[in-house]
Design a protein around this nucleic acid. Structure first.
Length: 427
RNA sequence: GGAGGGGUGGCCGAGCGGCCUAAGGCACCAGUCUUGAAAACUGGCACGGCGCAAGUCGUCAAGGGUUCGAAUCCCUUCCCCUCCGCCA
């Protein structure tokens, strides 16, 4: 949600930003509804001021025993009440329209974001590690996994459907080891671990920006008002909704493991094979709450925290800055981390780290009290994957594969797998 | 699932139709005193909207209603607590 003051004083800046995003958000409707609302509200308040004065006088007249005058004024106030009811309805109609529309306007891109319509305009920031060379034809994980007996898409389809996976044996243990490994790493790095509900209410999803626009991407639990979390960003960012945090307690860095559930609406035909795009996947999420002055330094901390996971696992990757047209709804700036996948001979997204500035803080009424005193201000929220666990598992299988189909276990993970050194076929 | 009790400013807590412009306390800020601090004393101190401003409207969990007027009365919902039942 953008500051209304910004909409009123710099509509051209907002127009330009939306154009850069290739957004068709209804800005002009919002602006005119806002004007109408303010007019109606001013009228309504004048009427209410009259009533407040009159009602007070009614009380005074009765108190001083002037019954007849009191009765007369009370009659006039009753008539005024009817006028107020009408004016109230009109103002409320405009207020609702403004509130509804402003939730559909995406965040403004930061000035450092490359302008472009789609991912082809994304900018490479840095690379780490060298894609491995093989003296054989590297396999994709959807061949490696089933051959090892640890990945089973057929039985997943039987019990659930497409875009689900079953992990067997050491595959299941590897998934669990990755979660623990990531949480331990972040926890030792200044993050506070938090365990949160996997179902959230509508308000939480509005707060982080998934609603009202993207309901089709979510799974809703029928007969309830609960949604399965599409990312831990939702419950974790909303933890302090409506609170005023002391500046001394910032920045706050939280990490959380949750499964994530996504309907993947509109992604039919994309990444249909393998583990890459699933309805359910595990993720360790990083969330920072910080001051406006430090949020871009925090974005760097956040991104590097996610990178550290890949460095410890010795997986090659590159860091991108997303272009205006490729960014998510709530983000002002986003770094994607893309890991090298030999099965596809390309870098693919494994983490997305965003500074949402005060966009989500406005929606969630999330503020801080400055250390020197003074007015409360909206704080800045950031979130990023640290990392998507399923995709990390893919990266390990494909980067650490051997000619015989076995897979070396990265050194950093061995303590979590009973010092297992190599994944070999299981029966 | 059943029966009760609650939700008031950063926190605690009074108020139960009109002097609520929400008492009092704690915390916080400024000042006096002090070598400095503490204590004491004095003053200040909720938030949001609209407006150039004067000002004005709103907010006592949320929404609706009664009334000239609602923190206060009525209805609905949500949340918290206690007890019972059930359950991992």
């Amino acid at each position: 949600m953008l500051a209304r003051e910004l909409l009123r004083t710099s509509p051209d800046r907002v127009r330009a930003a939306l154009a850069a995003r290739c957004s068709d958000a209804p800005l002009e409707r919002l602006l005119s509804a806002d004007v109408s609302w303010r007019e109606a509200q001013a009228e309504l308040e004048a009427l209410k001021a009259d009533r407040n004065r009159g009602s007070k006088e009614v009380g005074a007249l009765f108190a001083s025993g002037r019954r007849e005058e009191g009765e007369a004024l009370r009659g006039r106030m009753a008539a005024l009440g009817a006028k107020i009811a009408t004016a109230e309805q009109e103002a409320a109609t405009f207020a609702d329209e403004v509130a509804e529309l402003e939730l559909t306007i995406p965040n403004l891109p930061h000035e450092s974001v490359p302008v472009g319509p789609d991912e082809t305009a994304n900018r490479v920031e840095r690379r780490w590690g060298e894609p491995p060379t093989f003296d054989f034809e590297p396999q994709a994980h959807w061949d490696l996994g089933p051959a090892l007996g640890i990945l089973d898409f057929e039985r997943a389809a039987k019990i659930s459907g497409a875009r689900f996976a079953v992990l067997w044996g050491v595959g299941a243990a590897l998934e669990r080891a990755l979660v623990t490994f990531m949480l331990d790493l972040h926890r030792g790095n200044g993050y506070r671990e938090v365990y949160v509900p996997f179902m959230v209410n509508r308000q939480a999803l509005v707060g982080t920006g998934q609603l009202p626009k993207f309901e089709a991407d979510l799974f809703r639990v029928e007969g309830t008002d609960y949604f399965l979390v599409p990312t831990a960003e939702v419950p974790v960012t909303n933890l302090h909704r409506g609170e005023i945090l002391a500046e001394e307690t910032l920045p706050r860095r939280y990490c959380a493991y949750t499964p994530c559930f996504r309907a993947e609406a509109g992604s039919h035909g994309r990444d249909v094979r393998g583990l890459f795009r699933q309805h359910q996947f595990d993720k360790v999420e990083l969330v920072h709450l910080t001051t406006p002055e430090t949020s871009y330094a925090e974005l760097d901390v956040l991104t590097r925290s996610a990178e550290l996971v890949l460095q410890k696992l010795e997986l090659p990757y590159r860091v991108m800055t997303l272009a205006t047209g490729d960014m998510g709804f709530s983000a002002a700036k986003t770094h994607d981390i893309e890991v090298w996948l030999p099965g596809q001979q390309s870098y693919r997204e494994i983490s997305s780290c965003s500074n949402c500035e005060d966009f989500q803080a406005r929606r969630t009424d999330l503020k801080f009290r400055p250390a020197g005193g003074g007015k409360t201000r909206h704080l800045h929220t950031l979130n990023g994957s640290g990392l998507a666990v399923g995709r990390t598992l893919i990266a390990i299988l494909e980067n650490y594969q051997s000619a015989d189909g076995t897979v070396i276990v990265p050194e950093a993970l061995r303590p979590y797998l009973g010092e297992l050194e190599r994944l070999a076929p299981e029966r």
